[in-house]
Design a protein around this nucleic acid. Structure first.
Ligand SMILES: [Zn+2]
Ligand SMILES: [Zn+2]
Ligand SMILES: [Zn+2]
Ligand SMILES: [Zn+2]
Lengths: 166, 166
DNA sequence: TCGCCTTTAGTTATATTATAACGACTGAGA
DNA sequence: TCTCAGTCGTTATAATATAACTAAAGGCGA
């Protein structure tokens, strides 16, 4: 959720988020892409949430800082962040989540990673994993039928460890 | 695509589709669920397409036979068909496709199968596979982190064998 | 500094996908 | 017959996403 602490019109984010945003800016710099104010703000709002957030939720929050933000404002920022691999779209939820790996990745440019998502239907939390068995199984299944995979969506819905206890 | 042959207001489907619809009706009978006229028509329209079809595409076609069909008409039928496992929803496309396995399944009631989908970005065709390596890898990855999976979405986008040649 | 070009953003309108809510009808069984 | 659950008709609206056009900003060479 959005932290109400340390939230001003000038600088809405916690030091932790600010650090991530700095890394994102540095990452963009290496790719000659521009993390503009709006894009940075949208990324911050996404990173600041413990759950995936919808485009219109982002828009509502964004309007606290940019009075005239409109749907295209948000969708353009999301398109950019998706293209940079800084966020992911969760298809089953039509919502967006920060990439748990991108800002830690040291593999160099264009390191597109194969992520999978575990969606808890109890608490709504989504965890991102990179499981090579799944990736390999997918690549292998595709190869079997002569299909050349480019990108894959793996979203597993169920109950997280915590919600299984409740 | 919808076949224009053998298409009348009374009986819009080819013998091949009619046979599948009969099996679907028989399947529903075993589950004490009712494949009503509208549901049957919607299923037929989906089965008659070589690609996933959107709800509003279905609605357009449905209106040829039911003048007053409206969005809820289609979505109610889709909800039913999804619940029976007779169709699947392709999340990345917000579209629906007939289940390639349900009508051939002899495993008895509630045989929820673990399907994966290969989506060709060249021709739009979607093939459904049941790959146990993928299913096992997913189950195993979930178990690793104490997550109890209930259902999973696997959608692989890329180029089919045919489109790789073009 | 200037002009030129590309990228980004503002703005309005609209498209696309999906659901809420309520009343009427139907058919099975008490 | 009465009642109940399930289904459907109908209207309205919610939620998600994009088109199209204009304006501003930023990079870059002359
Ligand atoms: Zn990621
Ligand atoms: Zn949970
Ligand atoms: Zn299937
Ligand atoms: Zn193809």
């Amino acid at each position: 959720m959005l932290s109400s602490t340390a939230m001003t019109d000038q600088d809405p984010f916690s030091p932790q988020i600010l650090a991530l945003l700095d890394r994102a800016a540095a990452f963009c710099a290496t790719r000659a892409s521009r993390l503009t104010d709006t894009r940075r703000l949208v990324l911050g709002l996404i990173l600041d949430s413990s759950k995936p957030v919808g485009a219109y939720d982002i828009l509502d929050h964004l309007r606290q800082y940019q009075r005239n933000a409109a749907p295209p404002t948000v969708y353009r920022a999301l398109d950019f962040l998706l293209a940079q691999g800084l966020i992911h779209r969760i298809e089953r939820m039509s919502a967006f989540i920060g990439c748990a790996h991108r800002l830690e990745c040291h593999h160099g440019h264009g390191c597109g990673h194969r992520a999978q998502f575990l969606i808890c239907s109890g608490c709504g939390a989504v965890s991102e994993v990179e499981d090579s068995e799944i990736s390999h199984a997918i690549a292998s299944a595709a190869k079997k039928i002569g299909f050349k995979p480019h990108q894959s969506t793996v979203e597993i819905e169920g109950l997280c460890a915590i919600c299984q206890q409740g």
